[in-house]
Write a protein that binds this DNA or RNA. Structure first.
Lengths: 202, 202, 202, 202
DNA sequence: GATGAATGAGCCTTCATTCAT
DNA sequence: TATGAATGAAGGCTCATTCAT
């Protein structure tokens, strides 16, 4: 990549970073291109030198962030063997991930939790990612079924439940991080998976 | 209530029903008053004879639906004694509720899952309801703690997890009801709570 | 006039009275039919049983009030003989008139001072009245010229000046009646006419 | 001021000029932003690049024109000494001013004559200017009192009368400049001030 | 006659997008 | 490449007016 292109790529990242903040706060429809421009520190017209439209800008942001997240989960779990090791890897990555990328998470979580209803101009893509993500967790659960650790005819509902819990904790801590500790919540998920409600969480 | 007022009240409900459908599909910002009017089968200006503003229309819809839902949960669980009875009542109500009120659910779930980000013009109210809802489930979990059935220092994370799972199933079945069976999902939640992942779900 | 018609006429007057208040405060464009209805104490639609349109309602009000005013001036001055007697009669009527008809005056003065610029939907009529009014005063001034009391080649500028002063006093006292005393002002006009600025006003 | 800013400032003046014409003809409420845009020769949205709202556009126009007028009077009279010299300076400026600024005057006179009743969105400001203007003329009249030329206990009513006459002439010539000659009218005012009605005007 | 309800037209304003510099 | 300026296309809302009861 030439120097010219590198600078261009850098500018794109700067814009996306600012856009993540703005869209995370006000949503796709609630934020204007001018808002994004102001956050970026450039003129509105400048944005169109890098993105064809608001839709493309948002979609690019979303795609990038979802890719990063799902790839992160994949890489973290790929190296592991066995069910519990996979779960632990997934959870560790998750907690770590939530700690960083504040603005990032707002958009990501938002769209993953509510891809319909105008949250994103292209729900199909969000759905596709959710599906990929779900399959990834399903494959871990499948390990558990194969190992006899998980008693379930199908991994799907279990995966849905695990993701549901994790994201619920994410969301709770995002709304008020001082009132809800993410690590504690995730620990309680692990305990619940281990032995149900009668299990004493660490 | 006089005949006039009854008819007026009826019209309001007709509008809200249509609005639920429209807002559920396109979100608050994505749907225009003209869209709502078209769905209702009246002129745009007519809506303003019943609601002062788009904001008020949406908020009224949201408040009504949230109230109905939380009241439903409250009534269903109030009659029960003990932890598991409470959970069963909650789950039963939940499954039953999800089966009906299709359009209804779109809005409700949407805002409950993503109250920030322009999903609703008044996030504070949605937050308040979420909080009320959470406290309601917390009180059930507390029963379990008191009975020694639930091993947890605090009911909060457990309640977050339960709601997280339930709504995740709700959402999954809403996205594609033919691919994901809500009842099966809820059953798996129950099994998970009972004995963790090693429990065989019915 | 039958009983039915008398009642109708009475209702019309009630509406006009309320309308005078409303239009006097907010102007023709600034006041809505609903405002007039509220002030009258009836439904908006009711107004249309008595007036074909907002335009007609306002015009009727204006015509009536202007007629009353100009007729008042005419009657007051008709009985007089000579210039100064005419002026005194005019001034007396004027002061008396301003004391009563508060709301009345707001509309009247407004349109007489600014018949253009959307103050009234039909500037032509206002102009016509202004013209009539001006001619009336001109005829009095003409008496003065004939008597040799007024030294002017034409009565027109003198009449314009007299009316200008009177209305300026009217307006000043209307804006803040506690800070500006109408009677004092009118007296100063008389003194000025009598002997210019060197004349001591009573 | 840079070239950019100069052009921007120029555009603002072009818009204000067009707006003066439109508002002068139809009034604040009677004229729409589209009317102003058409008169300016641009799209409606363009106006919002220069003024935040219709209110601001009108108020800015009004403020500017009132400032110009009052400042003009002040400067014209400041240099003079004595009462009659002040009056002459004032009248000269006045006549000169009325000859120019046609569109200008429509708005200015309108609001000065009828600040209430929806003529302007902000009557308070118009009142303030009228007050300033009145005080200015009062100070000239006060000179006359001090010199013994003007026999009056207070300058206020005299000032009101002078302004009233001048503006009445302004208004009369504005309505039909061919039928009413402003210079003649103003001359008659001077004569009237000099020796009352018995004075022969030049 | 009185009125609640309905509505077409219009207004102010915003915004994504384009274009000339 | 960067940007100020311009604009068409909506969108939310008001209002004068009509109509059925």
């Amino acid at each position: 990549m030439g120097l010219r292109e590198r600078k261009r790529e850098h500018t794109i990242q700067v814009i996306l970073e600012a856009a993540a903040e703005v869209f995370g706060t006000d949503g796709y429809h609630g934020a204007s291109m001018e808002d994004v421009a102001r956050a970026t520190g450039c003129a509105t017209a400048t944005l169109y030198g890098y993105f064809k439209s608001k839709d493309e800008l948002f979609t690019r942001l979303l795609t990038q962030r979802m890719n990063e997240y799902v790839d992160g989960v994949r890489q973290a779990t790929e190296g592991s063997t066995g069910f519990w090791e996979g779960i632990d890897a997934y959870f560790s990555f998750f907690v770590d991930h939530c700690k960083h990328h504040e603005a990032f998470n707002k958009v990501l979580l938002l769209v993953m939790r509510a891809p319909t209803a105008g949250t994103t101009p292209d729900p199909a893509e969000a759905d596709a990612f959710n599906q990929t993500y779900l399959m990834l967790i399903c494959s871990i659960v499948q390990r558990g079924i194969d190992e006899g650790v998980v008693a379930a005819p199908s991994p799907l509902p279990v995966a849905v439940n695990i993701i549901g819990m994790l994201h619920a904790n994410w969301f709770a801590s995002l709304l008020d991080s001082s009132a809800y500790d993410l690590a504690v919540g995730v620990n309680s998920v692990r305990a619940l998976l281990k032995g149900g409600l009668s299990e004493v969480p660490r």
